[in-house]
Amino acid sequence: MSLGHVLLGVLADGPAHGYDLKRAHDERFPAVKTLAYGQVYATLARLERDGLVEVAETTQGAGPERTAYALTAEGRAALLGWLEKPEPAGPYPADDLVRKTVVALRLGADADAYLRRQREVHLARMRELLALQRATDAVDARIVVDHTISHLDADLRWLETAANRLAEGRGR
């Protein structure tokens, strides 16, 4: 996942200044590395150049000029396109699955569909790893594969819980 997608995802909530984006991101994803302001502004400039965000408002207070950015229709389409594609079943920073789900919810997109696609990818990977494990008698190789399988299993459980929470939310 690129920083561009991260910022577009946070902008799905509504227009925000670079400063607010960084803060919102760091609050929403407390388990991941915080963003640097320089990164945020450089990325916003690139996103604006590519037509994915636009300037919503410029305000001049006591300090420097502040620019609020908003998601454009293209930016929204880019996020939806990104959601269409499940992540590879690792190796990856685990929070990408979380980010995609949260963005889907904020966008009002089909988060269930994303979770299902992701489950299929994870199950397929687990199937490959189980076959790999069965094909070897070497204990060390089996233990190494166990490690990867256990992480996949944790993600699969999380995907299932997330789907159940969505269903529960709809039932209320």
Partner: peptide
């Protein structure tokens, strides 16, 4: 058990007494 599900050729997911039509792989 996800390991068991991954070992199968195909999966049917039930939810509230119905098969989820979009997750029959």
């Amino acid at each position: 058990d996800n390991r068991v599900a991954a070992t199968a050729d195909r999966e049917i997911v039930l939810r509230d007494g119905r098969a989820d039509p979009r997750l029959v792989t």
